[in-house]
Design a protein around this nucleic acid. Sequence first.
RNA 1: GGUCUGGUAGCUCAGUUGGAUAGAGCAACAGCCUUCUAAGCUGUGGGUCAUUGGUUCGAAUCCAAUCCAGAUCACCA
Length: 612
Amino acid sequence: MKSIITTLQALFLRYTQEIFSNESLTLHDIQITEINANFKGDYTLVLFALSKKLKQSPQQIADLLITTLSKPNYDHIFESFELVQGFLNFKLQASYLWKLFNKDYYNVYIYEHNFIEKSTQPKLICLEYSSPNTNKPLHLGHLRNNFLGMALCNILEKIGHTVVKTCIVNDRGIHICKSMLAWQLYGNNETPQSTGLKGDHFVGNYYVKFNEEYQKQIQILLAEGASKPDAEKNAPILLQAQNLLKKWEDNDHETLRIWEKMNNWVLDGFKETYLRIGSKFDKTYFESKIYKLGKNIIKQGLQDNILYQDINGAVCIDLTQEKLDNKVLQRADGTAIYITQDLALADLKYQDIKKENQQEIDQSIYVVGNEQNHHFEVLKHVCIKLQIKGSQNIYHLSYGMVELPTGKMKSREGTVVDADNLIDDLVSLAKNKTLELNKGFKEDQVDNLAEILGIASIKFFLLRMDPKNKMVFNPEESLDFKGFTAAFIQYTYVRIRSLLEKNNFDNDYKNKPCAVGYYNILENASVRNLLKKIFLYNDKMSLAATMYNPAILAQYIYDLCQLFNSFYNEVQIKHENDIDNTKTFLLMLSFITKEIIYDSVTTLGITLPNEM
RNA sequence: GGUCUGGUAGCUCAGUUGGAUAGAGCAACAGCCUUCUAAGCUGUGGGUCAUUGGUUCGAAUCCAAUCCAGAUCACCA
């Protein structure tokens, strides 16, 4: 269903073309905005662009428009006009709003069960997100990544695109060897089972242990008179870890056995968290399985003279024409680095998805933090130069870091906010709050509800902000259940459910014809504002999709809920008269609000309770 | 040093191709529950949109310079 702004734009385009006999006018010249709260009316036609194009003053244009549109042979949809310094404010007829709601929203929804217009150009999109390392548990930054990825996927699908969700698991490399080594040295054959720890936390503890020992050894070397860089490079435990990496790459049986065992512990832990937060993937790739493929691409690149070897034998690419430096793609000793496997993955994803969908990928989105902006710029250029298919359609959706009030999160200094712990904290906060409000739920109901509310609260908190900006997370202040939060929205939702139920909506009103009324109720500002906000849903969804920004949707939902609550407090539906269909209309309005909340909140990946 | 982000209320954030007197939430203060769920609603206070200049009917938004903060510029990931 079309948004009201678009509808009005089209209408005014027709009007102006007719009235000013000017066929060259386009939609671009018709600037319609929601009215500024300080003025009277519903919407505003901003006349400056039109004035320039028509070479007439805003006053002249407005005069002619008003006199013509007020004539009875024109669409009878305007109630009044007011011109204020180039802004033509107008109020719509209540009957028009009523009809619009009934025909374009209510009935369409009842029949089609959908609010959103599909894109006329559906795309096949590959969306990569999450990308965990298997040496430590997920933290708050990963949560932002996961929530963004899921929400974006849902938004794009809502618009009608096909999205293939992929995940690359970074399960090899020196960082993995560090936790492995620490476990070998200090683990005493303990396991997640024997300690009762979640697998990823269990392994993460050894990663921390490694760094502690590493720091100790550096201090010892420094005390013995070594320079700082030497100490950092020669600490025995680091040399051991490097040695372990070499053994891993040489397929040392025992090393691989331990690696696989520890990796599975971590992956089991991730699985649990992903299930809890609702992250799903269509395809999961493992770096350990694909990193070697990159070497073939590099070999081919050398043969084609796109790449070159420097004096030490490292394979490089010249990106000076792209205003970037020369970039190494493979070490002098022939081993792979980060970008080597990214090349392989880009190629692999393209081939796999094309094969499965019998269709070219239109876009490949990577949800990765903005610390890697440079890396992805380089990656895209390298892919293009190496003529990897689909390279032109690579898009890095870069999101800002999550910081604490004290500054950056640093794993080594223990200042990370652990994902699992955070979720537990929020769930338990939600539980306390629920118990405090004492609404008479049974114990398992309380636990269920707390799980829904706790997870929703962190999701909404992370999604309501523009992805590209960094954000500050204050544990004390952020974890609230009032104001601009998920709980507020969930509360509004259950409140509407209850309202509809108490008023017997499903049986007595849902299918009642209600095309005509006396419309007095639309003079109530809270009713009118809610209705106008409903008319914007489609617009906001498609904007969120084109901008890759779930925050637009989050903000919209919040506004909608706030308007509903104002309306709810002002109008007592059960006391309204239904002789003129007013009560039916208000219940339908509430119903559509509820359905939009459900539709949009679900799209963000957030669960709604039925009561709270 | 180069490149890229950002700087809006005490704090956390909106502000959609330049539009009218810059908006929310939190925090503070004052009200509203025998009436459809008060996790709600209503109101008050709080701003040199980092600074300076420019572009024009009009600038938080575009341009330039300066200041501040962050990221990045690895044969790390």
